[in-house]
């Protein structure tokens, strides 16, 4: 495909575009297929972005915090807590360490035991919130020191359950991106079939064009241009419908969790705009391939 071909295609040739009969079921098929695929692509893109955001948030929030649990008899708990806080403040890589108040611990347990839980009367371990700095600390070294100086301390750096969550969100993002690729592939397959059908139905047109000296590139271009423009229009309509569908989803909220966060945020609302040109590009390549192949067979 030369630069001249692409330039000719983009600039257009009103007469050339007219040599292909205007109607036929392939026109509607191309419009529908590209519209439906663009609609699905918007949702796959929204899912990909949402799961990406989720993975990033979980990774950053959880990676920078840890919890130290002090399981000690009541008479030793304060001493061990203070000893642990001293160690934590001396440990390089830790930005801050803070013992949770009784009210904060009660609030954490409230979903399970109710708001009126008397934490003081129960053997609830003391929790210390640890926030690391940009460099980060050495969890293995900290555990060794704590085991020697604060026997009841257990460090939970969240890695046990953080990793599967982040992995899941990352996999979801990957699946969504694969879906976008599959959608593009399915669209290419459908448009190739439609283009083949159009070329077969217009065999006589091709014969007449060849008789009067049309090059294969000219004939292919007439079909490619028609299919690409149809795909562009169909994908544009599908994209608008998809964006409206995403916009009508419930707004993101903590209560709703992941599902209500499915959508676009900020400048990512502009991302669906790339779907129609991409759909047109897929149609261009699919029709070009189909036309060259078919014309080769007809020679």
């Amino acid at each position: 495909m030369s630069a001249g071909t692409i330039r000719g295609f983009l600039l257009g040739d009103a007469q050339a575009a007219r040599v292909v009969p205007p109607s036929g079921f392939t026109a509607n098929l191309t419009l529908f297929a590209s519209g439906a695929m663009a609609f699905l692509a918007v949702f796959a893109l929204a899912l990909s972005l949402a799961s990406g955001r989720l993975a990033d948030r979980w990774a950053s929030e959880l990676a920078r915090s840890a919890t130290l649990r002090i399981n000690a008899p009541l008479d030793q708990r304060t001493a061990q807590t203070n000893a642990a806080l001293t160690i934590l403040r001396q440990t390089p890589g830790i930005a801050s360490a803070r013992a949770l108040s009784a009210e904060e611990q009660a609030a954490l347990l409230a979903p399970w035991f109710g708001a009126d839980l008397p934490v003081d009367t129960l053997p609830v371990p003391q929790l210390i919130e640890v926030v690391e700095d940009e460099i980060g600390y050495d969890p293995a070294g900290l555990r060794l020191r704590l085991s020697a100086e604060v026997p009841g301390a257990i460090l939970d750096d969240h890695s046990r359950w953080r990793k599967p969550l982040v992995d899941a969100a990352t996999s979801l993002r990957r699946l969504a991106l694969v879906s976008v690729l599959l959608i593009a592939g399915a669209m290419a397959a459908m448009i190739t079939l439609a283009a083949n059908a159009a070329l077969a139905a217009n065999r006589q047109v091709i014969e007449v064009l060849r008789l009067v000296g049309a090059r294969d590139r000219y004939i292919a271009q007439a079909f490619v241009r028609r299919f690409t423009l149809r795909a562009l229009i169909g994908a544009g309509v599908g994209m608008v419908a998809g964006v409206l569908g995403v916009a009508l989803l419930p707004a993101a909220s903590d209560e709703g969790g992941f599902l209500t966060g499915l959508g676009f945020q900020g400048t990512t609302w502009l991302l669906p705009l790339v779907i129609p040109p991409l759909g047109a590009l897929v149609a261009f390549l699919a029709t070009w391939y189909a036309a060259r192949r078919r014309l080769g067979e007809l020679s």
């Binding site: 007469q15 050339a16 007219r18 040599v19 009969p21 047109v205 007449v208 064009l209 009067v212 000296g213």
Partner: peptide, 17 residues
């Protein structure tokens, strides 16, 4: 001929292509 084009366009088809 190309049945969807008027006669003048059909006659001019070699020029067009």
């Amino acid at each position: 001929f190309l049945d969807h084009l008027p006669l003048s366009d059909n006659i001019a088809l070699p020029l067009t292509v």
